[in-house]
Nucleic acid binder design. Structure first.
Lengths: 149, 149
DNA sequence: ATAATTCCTACCATTCCGATAGGGATTATA
DNA sequence: TATAATCCCTATCGGAATGGTAGGAATTAT
């Protein structure tokens, strides 16, 4: 029941890219350095995010990544779905699961998995990158203030 | 973000043992056969459940397992905590995590993990073995009725 | 004594995770 | 046009976790 490093790194990167929304593209290398993420690993993660349509890339010198949508159109649910595949505690309640479990008719546990999947999904899809950016700024302001005192 | 086979098998076994609450002890072998779970694997799982204080065992011939508490005192949260270790999407919000993350002061994502952990926990700890037994019986009654028609 | 059980420990095969690595394609700019 | 800075594609790899399997000891009812 753990979210992978890939998932966490990807979310960190997405929030960072969202922070620069409307400006110059931001490089994977830069993100990797600032958040202490293995550079080549992050490259792959960015590719995943690109394939999922969450970021767009600009190749060549001065290239980098930008959001493919606005920060308030991308939720953490979108991100984790792209990165970790699917948010569900059990395969039988996975979205892209076609084959029905043979014991399904008498299975009483499936409902529980369904409920858990629902509450995770609800939480994650209610939080946008914009929300995370706002929160971050707020947090940094507060930290700066503490520093002054 | 998946619950392990160990977790699922353990919950199935617990519900089964709860079904026999107040009666004779039920053997791991019997559970394994009826639910198609590898026998020796289930043995280990039952040991885990015993160590967690959820079942008690009776050794020797005619031995087996019984609930260590009443079915309405044991929740699915208790079960999964014992089986899968800890229900949290990230180590930094795990219950038995002592060392604070170095980036914690500026980390805005931790709150999200915390929220998810909370909603999973809430769901799982609200469902008792008794609930699951009732549900199962209901389901079986319905199935039997369908069969008659 | 025997059979049925739990219990303890070790081992093992496969898969997944978290990278690392080499090199190609593209692009700004000097 | 050469160069440096990027993204991009593919392959590989070590370690840990997962999902078992296995041998045999201890306990107990019959």
């Amino acid at each position: 029941m753990k979210i992978s490093a890939k998932g966490e790194y990807g979310i960190i990167a997405l929030i960072d890219v969202a922070n620069y929304y409307g400006g110059e593209p931001i490089q994977a290398k830069s993100i990797a350095n600032r958040y202490n993420i293995p550079e080549r690993f992050l490259e792959q993660i960015m590719t995943t995010l690109k394939k999922a349509g969450l970021v767009k890339s600009i190749r060549g010198s001065h290239g980098g990544y930008q959001l493919a949508k606005t920060p308030w159109e991308i939720t953490l649910g979108d991100a984790l779905k792209a990165l970790d595949g699917d948010i569900s505690p059990m395969y039988c309640v996975s979205e892209n699961n076609k084959e029905q479990c043979s014991k399904e008719r008498l299975c009483t546990i499936k409902d529980v998995w369904e409920e858990i999947r629902g509450c995770i999904q609800k939480t994650l899809s209610s939080i946008t990158l914009k929300d995370m950016c706002n929160k971050k700024m707020e947090r940094e302001m507060k930290a700066a203030h503490m520093y002054f005192i």
